[in-house]
Design a protein around this nucleic acid. Structure first.
Lengths: 118, 118
DNA sequence: CTTAGTGCACTATGCACATAGTACACTAAA
DNA sequence: TTTAGTGTACTATGTGCATAGTGCACTAAG
């Protein structure tokens, strides 16, 4: 994984796993990799990995049990709620950025539809 | 101005001024506030303010002249180019985020058009 | 020449992040 | 009971960001 130096690594890894959860790639109740294993998977420090799970737990997306591991929450309503929030926030941020650039919603939407994939 | 603690302040202030330049709120050739004055305007440290101008100069959006101050570049082509890049990058980032959430371009564009303003 | 404003280059401190390493408590399985 | 895997809690180090403060070189205006 490629990391942006202008943003904390724990936040970037957290967002990646968060996305896996809300899209169902990591289903409710599933066991997540152990802290030490996560560190290897994402080439980060075990302490940073622990931070990732702490923050995910704080958002109600997973539960850590000492000696057993960390699991995706079974609260599907919460997961759906977070997914909606993520989408709405992304849209709001984009609309805001474009507005600051003096580009209206019509034009912004058009750019999304016609955008080239690189 | 409100600062996001998960991103460097110099980058946030830089983006703000960059936006002012590409939208014409700060026209080509205009004198920008002095480093010490900028620090007061944005409630940041003079060193951080200096960093902002250094980075803006590195992007070819302003020119600093010792003893005279910092000025918006007169290269209007460069300004237009940066504006286009900012818009395209914002669109690409948004489309990518939505794709990761399993939301297609049609739906993403619809959200932009129908998004509520808060 | 003097002065004010400027860019620019330093030193120093505090903090968060990321790293490395160690240790302990707990759980499940052999 | 022993063992492996786990979450959790420490200490310690290095780095970048942001802060504070000082000083110097340069420019334009008085």
């Amino acid at each position: 994984m490629q990391y942006d130096p202008n943003s904390p690594i724990w936040l970037q890894v957290m967002t990646a796993i968060k996305t896996d959860i809300v899209t169902g790639r990591r289903p409710p109740g599933e066991k997540l990799p152990g802290g030490r294993e996560l560190a290897v998977l994402y080439t980060i420090n075990p302490n940073t990995a622990a931070r990732v799970y702490q923050e995910l737990e704080r958002e109600g997306l997973c539960e850590s049990r000492r000696g057993m591991g960390t699991y995706v929450t079974g609260d599907e309503e919460r997961i759906a709620q977070v997914r909606g929030t993520m989408a709405r926030q992304a849209a709001a941020r984009f609309a805001n950025e474009m507005e600051k650039l003096g580009i209206g919603r019509q034009e912004a939407a058009r750019m999304i539809l016609e955008e080239e994939k690189e």
